[in-house]
């Protein structure tokens, strides 16, 4: 049994939460640069250039990438052989509270759908846990803003609509969202499971490595086709028109009921803030 102190988790998560709000990962920035070269219109190019300039400024650690520093989402993988000194929830929320204060991040969480009182420290985080073999601890975290989250959908399709039905829902969703979710976006899709499972695997999809390769050839093909079709829509950077609407499409799937075909589409804006922590 490996005992993990709460402080170990708090310190590591706090650091990662602050870092992700100030720095985009290199592979995403590289794709933005390529997207800019690929645009024809000056307007579309200049918008991507502003996004690139913004991340250069944010990197210095003074101004966060975006003022919507989001609600924190945590996917935790906990080894069977780990004994936590304190409940995970309390360590994660302590880390969030400290990070949002010390990192000068905006507190965007309210307590209730109608009271809407700010909780003052951006807690609680949204935490998903998975038990895995071994004595390791792994956290995938994201700061998820509302602009793109508000344009995300879950829809229960009927199985007979097949691939074409799924494609239509995805393409229509991105088209209707237009510039609102801050394109260029990453499109995370969850196919199957049930209502909540589809949403969960869609969120996991936007956290996948941009350069990974879907092992399921049918889903890989669908990712490629949707990438082309979404970029052919002409929505463009921030909706002003252009060739770059999405940077990547990632699809996860799960078995489902014979009568169901749940589809969740989770959109990630170009302020693609995420980190991984392994303890």
């Amino acid at each position: 049994m490996r005992l993990v102190q709460s402080k170990t988790i708090v310190d590591a998560l706090k650091k990662a939460i602050i870092k992700m709000n100030y720095e985009l990962d290199n592979s995403f920035v590289a794709r933005l640069r390529r997207a800019k070269e690929n645009e024809d219109k000056d307007l579309s190019k200049s918008i991507i250039q502003e996004i690139l300039d913004n991340q250069e400024i944010a990197k210095h650690g003074e101004y966060p990438l975006c003022q919507d520093t989001g609600i924190v989402v945590v996917f935790a993988e906990i080894g069977f052989d780990v004994k936590l000194q304190e409940p995970l929830e309390s360590s994660v929320n302590t880390a969030v509270s400290l990070a949002y204060k010390e990192g000068f991040l905006r507190k965007s969480v309210v307590n209730h759908p109608f009271d809407r009182k700010n909780t003052q420290d951006n807690t609680p985080a949204i935490i998903h846990t998975k038990l895995v073999p071994g004595d390791g601890l792994k956290f995938k975290i994201a700061a998820k803003g509302a602009g793109s989250e508000n344009m995300s959908v879950v829809k229960m399709l009927t199985p007979t609509v097949g691939v074409e039905g799924v494609k239509k829902l995805v393409v229509d969703t991105i088209f209707n969202a237009g510039g609102k979710p801050c394109p260029p976006i990453i499109v995370g899709i969850g196919l199957g499971g049930n209502l909540e499972k589809s949403a969960l695997i869609a969120k996991e999809a936007i956290l996948r490595d941009l350069d990974d390769y879907n092992p399921d050839p049918v889903l890989k093909k669908l990712e490629d086709e949707l990438y082309e079709e979404i970029n052919a829509l002409g929505v463009g950077p921030m909706g002003v028109g252009g060739k770059t609407t999405c940077i990547a499409v990632k699809i996860n799937s799960y078995p489902m009921h014979i009568a169901s075909l749940p589809v969740a589409i989770n959109i990630q804006c170009h302020a693609n803030r995420h980190e991984e922590v392994i303890l």
Binding site: A58, E62, Y63, P64, L65, C66, Q67, D68, T69, F104, L105, R106, S108, A146, G147, N150, K180
Partner: peptide, 20 residues
């Protein structure tokens, strides 16, 4: 339409992009 992040000491404001 903006809700900025808190300013660091010495700065007039924090990150200040537009909201939807």
């Amino acid at each position: 339409y903006v809700g900025p992040t808190p300013p660091r000491p010495g700065n007039p404001i924090g990150s200040s992009g537009p909201t939807s």
